[in-house]
Amino acid sequence: MKKTIFLGTLTAVGLVAGAAAAGTLDDVKARGTLNCGVVTGLAGFGAPDANGQWQGFDVSVCRAVAAAVFGDPTAVEFIPTTGKTRFTALASGEIDMLARNTTWTFSRDVDLKFEFIGINYYDGQGFMVPASLGVSSAKELNGATVCIQTGTTTELNLADFFEENNLEYEPVPIETNAEAQQQYLAGACDVYTTDASGLAATRATFENPDDHIILPEIVSKEPLGPLVRHGDPEWGDVVRWTLNALIAAEELGVTSANVAELAEGTENPEVNRLLGSEGNLGEMLGLEADWAKNAIMANGNYGEIFEKNIGENTPIGLARGLNAQWTEGGLIYSPPFR
């Protein structure tokens, strides 16, 4: 029966908590859209553009999952979350998955009962200082005022680093990158610290980027990845293997340009299994046979997504570094499709 949203809400408020809900995959399919939690605005990783279309590295993961489930990369509702609200949004079922620069840590995985389904970006916390300060290492920062963009595990890493090296510092916690950057440029803090990817992106927008240097120290491991709720392995598998499909596609040379052609059938059995022309991997996941093809068609493979959103030809200008394929000396590695 068709009920309007308005009426649906009105009646729903009167309801009582009932039996356990069905699996997330069934819920998502029944709803017809994927609810994906994203950041409220971080250049290159996720923000709506002038037309209101969400763009970015994390956003592409959401689109790929939507494409894998529905065959339609636009069947996704983006729900902006802040550092404070993201976990509750996921735990309460408001969003089906969270693709928002969130560090995989023990306590989030175990205590908060979330399941990190993989890593789509290996990051680490770095420092940026004005070149005029004459500092070449983070260990020379004794007594400095440090602007921190709060959100991931930045505050904790910073405290650890300065304690470990027996240095004094003055933390200035700031909520948004824009405000932190303004304080930093006005000289209200000597150092700006956040994930190295964010530092590069911020520096790129400065009036004189060359006046600022990013210090060599990376003080933390920040494996960023999408996460889902504990206790629903089927849905976890869908998101995990969609991400893996994007990674494997790059390794196997499947791109958005040639995926349609390769899906007809190739010499390489793994490509065939991935794209559904051989085997029944899609069925095992509870999806169509061409799920991975759709996911790759949405935004391209992992490498294409990287280049388009944060790669060296974008204003963000990040090198692949740790995020290169394992075959090229990086850490990006997908388990085999078999």
Binding site: T40, G41, L42, A43, G44, A47, P48, D49, A50, P80, T81, T82, K84, T85, T176, N177, A178, E179, Q181, Q182, L185, A201, T202, A204, T205, F206, E207, P315, I316
Partner: peptide
């Protein structure tokens, strides 16, 4: 709380875009 009202839009998407950062 992450809603894009007038102030939320300014502090979120607009200041985060590479065009208008600053």
């Amino acid at each position: 709380i992450s809603m894009f009202d007038l102030v939320g839009l300014i502090r979120g998407p607009i200041l985060a875009s590479t065009d208008w950062n600053g």
